[in-house]
Amino acid sequence: MIDTVIYIFLAVGVFFNGLGSFGLIRFPDVYTRLHASTKCTTFGSIFTSLGVITYGFYHWHVDSASYGVLAIHAFIALLALVITNPTGAHAIARAAHRSGVYPKRAVVDKLKEKGDLSD
């Protein structure tokens, strides 16, 4: 039973990670690539880590206490990942726009119209 849950988590995680990496190749410019890579790899990594956390908590119940520590440390790593990943994406997008890489095929670009934002 619990094995099936872990398999499902891992499969979903691998699927979304693959999707994000594939979108990295397929999309035409920086911003859409950031869409694919940030959202999909964060979501996929959440699910693969959830698989590990479920494994740890289940074996904590069954086998020994060290598996619980595994689950908790994996949870802290996941938390740090979820906090830092969108921030990095935001920094890259801002840097790309300021360094003069504008979105391709854009219908509207309010930021370019507004001009340079001073800090």
Binding site: G13, N17, G20, S21, L24, V30, R33, L34, S37, T38, T41, T42, G44, S45, T48, S49, A77, L81, N85, G88, A89, I92, A95, A96, S99, V101
Partner: peptide, 18 residues
């Protein structure tokens, strides 16, 4: 461009942690 390369590096970062 350079931002594209940084996006690639960022993706590798996330995958390495996973």
């Amino acid at each position: 461009t350079a931002p594209d390369r940084v996006v690639g590096l960022d993706t590798i970062n996330t995958l390495v942690i996973a």
